[in-house]
Design a binder for these strands. Structure first.
Lengths: 227, 227
DNA sequence: ATAGCCGGGTGGTGA
DNA sequence: TCACCACCCGGCTAT
């Protein structure tokens, strides 16, 4: 009797979670590797697994989106499994909107599919089913969505450069560029011009000028000439 | 002066759920319509809301995928909100795999983003956040700015600014500062000077000059500044 | 590529 | 001109 072999690649660091073992118990052909970005790979689908607590804490560490970026650029389909009692964790959260907001961003901007499981066991079942579906649908995959262009335009650089100035964020950077036309023009401008033509006030303008003209001192120079 | 208003379209049949009212309470401009396929529409995103029980019972009716098909062909992005205690409902199921399998199919084949909320209140919050995100995305996306990790000293700022130039890292930035003495002097220098005195090549130098002098072009139509 | 809050800067208003 | 104040922006922080 022919038996279908499901194949799942698991990152070596997932071993302690017990999930690889559970999968093997279900008859999956498990391949352990050292994966760069994801925790599991099934066919062309990458899976990132995170416990609720990991997920929550990564909200505040900023590392989350960077990781999401890596996965999304490496695979065409990818899903996030959040494991554990999300509801309970959510109750402890001071600001639940951050949680929901992040999920929305992951789902809509990064194109993640997100699943919630209660424990490793459920995660294993989910992966198993996924492998089964991926296998049977092998040939009837829908065409993928167009890749996001993610262009690094000149405009982005311009805003980035000005935005690295103190007390200048993206909004102000854009305003300045609109007023002055180019990065150089902004940087050439005197503080008065900055204050008059750009939408920024004298205080900020002076601060910027001082910084631009400040003499560079290697070593730990702590000239608090600002403000 | 205008106040920014979030706008959500709700199907008339959603009224009894109380969610439209909750949204209105959050200051959303709610528009009730009779929608063909979805329950809510936010920007270009369609939202189908289902209570857990509805969802579960529709597993066995087969009508679910037909509905999914209709939504997916009418909108480019769409999400499903499953409202209620999924965990509890799942415990009653004889065969949970049907549940998970359906979710997987919806997510991967139909490209649904699926969210789970506890009650109408949470659903309303989710929709509200979604509207907010959709709205801020409608503006042009801005480049991610350099992390400004607590800059105290002038020296750090100087390096950060130059480091935000293309192909200039912290190391080169420092070198340039040492050669030229101040940020302004670096930016004033011609590409030849940069190449000769700073340790960078002409190619990089030219690239930087180009960027500095590039005319700023707002990508999207900017809102006219009527006062 | 989160959301909320706070502090400070800006620019307008009206005296 | 000045004082006030409303708004906007940027920076911080959150489990």
């Amino acid at each position: 009797m022919f038996r279908l072999v499901l194949r799942i690649v698991a990152d070596a660091r997932e071993t302690p979670s017990g999930i690889p073992e559970l999968l093997a118990g279900k008859g999956v052909y498990l391949q352990k590797k050292s994966l760069d970005v994801a925790d599991y790979v099934i066919g062309e689908i990458a899976i990132e697994r995170k416990t609720v607590n990991d997920f929550i804490s990564s909200l505040y560490r900023g590392r989350l989106f960077e990781q999401a970026e890596r996965i999304s650029s490496a695979y065409s389909k990818y899903l996030l499994i959040v494991e554990g009692d999300a509801q309970e964790a959510l109750a402890d959260l001071k600001n639940p909107n951050v949680y929901w907001g992040t999920l929305l961003a992951l789902a809509l901007k990064f194109d993640f599919r997100i699943f919630f499981t209660m424990d490793q066991d459920e995660t294993a079942s989910l992966l198993y089913l996924l492998a089964k579906q991926a296998q049977s649908d092998y040939r009837m995959q829908r065409p993928m969505l167009v890749k996001k262009p993610r262009m690094e335009t000149t405009k982005d650089w311009q805003i980035l450069i000005l935005g690295s100035l103190p007390s200048i964020g993206p909004k102000l950077a854009e305003k300045l560029l609109q007023s002055f036309g180019s990065v150089r023009n902004v940087l050439k401008a005197s503080s008065k011009e900055l204050a008059v033509r750009g939408g920024i006030g004298e205080a900020r303008a002076r601060k910027i000028q001082q910084l631009l003209d400040a003499e560079y001192r290697p070593g730990q120079a702590k000239q608090s000439k600002l403000a």
